[in-house]
């Protein structure tokens, strides 16, 4: 069985996002780029399965749509333990474009389980995974918080309102994952970093697709009102303000 994990290259989650003049684009100076947190957890789970001989998972590939400048993020995934990588050489302009590029490369190589994170922490689109599955015409499972392999077939845990359920779909399929898929992201060992240098990265050129959306610009959220402090010995005052001023209780 072969797994591919789609990884997105995003600003480190502590970054204070700033925009360039006119708010047309983000100021990338000084930004540290990292593997999107959910993709890092997906990769961790995929590697745990590969490292368990009973699972039947033979290889874990990472796939990324992006320019050559995102290679360090791909190498990081290889250092963590992925066997090889796919990069589609492009600027990932919108979700539809990105998903169609990834779907084309993935279908050329053939995989049993395709894993995507529920969203990327930059655009918060929650779209690429679902779109890949539709481009490929295969089943998808979303809100996945657990993945195991039983008798050679994947079993998913899906979060539902107020609980969770176990379910199966046939392979090939797409799993769109969220919290719970793995506990802590695996980190690269020194040996992993050395090995990553020579692991194969297969580069694909883009297929013809449209972008269906464009960014017109960004806005910062309006700054909230300054904090009103309440005497710790008089919490009744807080309740009064919440009731009569904010009117939320």
């Amino acid at each position: 069985m072969k797994i591919v994990v789609c990884i997105s290259n995003v600003p480190d989650t502590t970054t204070r996002i700033k925009f360039l003049e006119g708010n047309a684009s983000i100021d990338t100076s000084g930004i540290q780029w990292v593997i999107n947190p959910w993709d890092e957890l997906s990769l961790t789970r995929a590697l745990e399965l590969r490292d368990d001989p009973a699972s039947g998972v033979k290889t874990v590939t990472v796939a990324h749509a992006g320019p050559a400048s995102s290679e360090p993020t791909i190498r990081k995934a290889l250092a963590i333990g992925a066997d090889d990588a796919i990069r589609v050489n492009c600027e990932p302009a919108d979700a539809f474009f990105t998903a169609s590029q990834l779907a084309a490369a993935i279908s050329k190589e053939g995989f049993d389980i395709i894993i995507c994170g529920i969203e990327s922490s930059d655009f918060n689109g929650s779209a690429v995974g679902g779109m890949i599955s539709e481009f490929l015409g295969i089943p998808s499972v979303s809100s996945v918080s657990g993945l195991s392999i039983e008798n050679g077939a994947p079993v998913f845990t899906r979060e539902i309102d107020g609980g969770r359920e176990s379910l199966k779909v046939p392979v090939p399929c797409v799993a769109i994952v969220q919290k719970g898929i793995a506990k802590e992201p695996r980190i690269a060992s020194m040996r992993g970093i050395m090995a990553a240098r020579t692991k194969p990265v297969r580069v694909y050129e883009t297929v013809d697709t449209d972008c269906l959306t464009e960014i017109a610009g960004f806005e910062k959220p309006a700054p909230g009102a300054a904090c009103k402090y309440i005497d710790p010995d008089d919490p009744a005052r807080l309740i009064e303000l919440l009731q009569n001023e904010a009117r939320v209780i």
Binding site: F96, V128, G129, G130, M131, F135, S140, S143
Partner: peptide
């Protein structure tokens, strides 16, 4: 809705209809 169900379905519908999506 941009809830779990919406996130599961909207992207697939988007590809079927070739419709651009703005989520959230």
């Amino acid at each position: 809705s941009n809830n779990m169900t919406g996130k599961a379905l909207a992207p697939r519908v988007s590809v079927r209809l070739k419709a651009g999506i703005a989520s959230g």
